[in-house]
Simulated scan of single mutants.
Amino acid sequence: MKKLLVGIFLCHSLLYYAQKDNNTAVLSDITEKVKQYYIDKDAYKKVDSLFKSESQKGSFSNLSKKEFAALLTERLRTVIKDKHFFVKYLENYTPKKQGNEKEMEKLNNFHNSLENFGFENVKRLEGNIGYINFKGFAEPKSSTKTLESAMNFVANTNSLIIDLRENGGGDNGMLLLFCSYFFNNKTDLYTTYSRYNNKADLNSTLSKVSGEKYLNKKVYILTSNKTFSAGEALAYFLKEYKLAEIIGEKTGGAANPVKDFIIQDQYLLLVPAGKVTSSVSHTNWEHIGVNPDHETKVENALKIAHAKALKNILKTDTKTELSIPEIKNLINKLEE
């Protein structure tokens, strides 16, 4: 019995030290990635100090790998005050093999297709108002046709509501493609500077898109404090060019684009590696968020946007399937 207990103790000890060594390697790799890639060249010093302090306190001990990743995410965001930092444990992860990029792209596209490339709902509201509920930006090569279908569906509406209240961001190329539907001509929106390669890239809308552009009509964008990253960017740039009115809550405040890394073949790490600068305001929404034109509780945003669109119909004497009394009655219901 004594030998059995000693064996169990030794087994637990070995597991503890193996986990500790692995955690140390993970922390070291993350610190190095922050040092090499984060937009602020001195931020890694805060990360290094944080990890040493937390390790000494035993904060990373006796945690599952999922718990470890979640704690790292929370600590990184707190010490650097950048909400784009993210660590996730990759269960059953298989390291990429050389020449396997096409298979990975196919797999990613399949997973994105299961969520319809971010397009949750596209419909026509009473008064011939278009509505797109959009939750995330998948890469454009796979999602162009879905965006085209959505925009073609709302092309004949009198105004459009884009619901970004649950949009967590995503691909920069898809952001530019979506923006392109609201600009008549190619427009330089912003530059992205990356410290790690000392390079600034100009990001512009496309002059032509595959679907119907939505021009010279009222556009309303719904936001919440969960609207993040590229979701914020869509609201920010359409507002900046006076192409949309923002209704809802102030957004999350994450402008810096990210690079992704696999750490120790177990964890996904997102590091904000660039800085966005608007061609108009020469700034961005980092730490600030996008302020709505009409601030309201998130649950009221859609009704308010719908009522505003209907009031604009009355103001401009635009024809719809509803009579003027019916429009007024609907406005009253929405504003109750």
Rank of each mutant, 00 (worst) to 15 (best):
A230C: 12
A230D: 08
G231P: 06
G231I: 11
G231Y: 14
G231S: 11
G231M: 10
G231L: 09
G231K: 09
E232N: 07
E232D: 11
E232T: 10
A233W: 04
A233E: 12
A233S: 11
L234M: 01
L234C: 00
L234H: 02
L234S: 00
L234R: 00
A235C: 07
A235E: 11
A235Q: 10
A235W: 14
A235F: 14
Y236I: 02
Y236N: 00
Y236S: 01
F237G: 01
F237S: 02
F237A: 00
F237E: 14
L238P: 08
L238V: 09
L238T: 15
L238E: 13
L238H: 12
E240K: 06
E240M: 12
Y241L: 01
Y241K: 06
K242Y: 04
K242D: 15
K242Q: 14
L243R: 09
L243N: 08
A244Q: 06
A244V: 02
E245W: 08
E245C: 08
I246D: 11
I246P: 08
I246V: 15
I246T: 11
I246E: 12
I247E: 14
I247M: 08
I247S: 12
G248F: 13
G248I: 13
E249V: 05
E249W: 07
E249H: 07
K250G: 02
K250L: 01
T251D: 03
T251P: 01
T251S: 10
T251G: 02
T251L: 02
G252R: 11
G253W: 06
G253Q: 07
G253A: 10
A255D: 06
A255T: 05
A255W: 04
N256R: 13
N256K: 12
N256C: 05
N256G: 00
K259R: 10
K259M: 14
D260I: 03
D260K: 06
D260Q: 06
D260V: 05
D260H: 11
F261C: 01
F261P: 02
F261L: 00
F261T: 07
F261I: 02
I262R: 02
I262H: 03
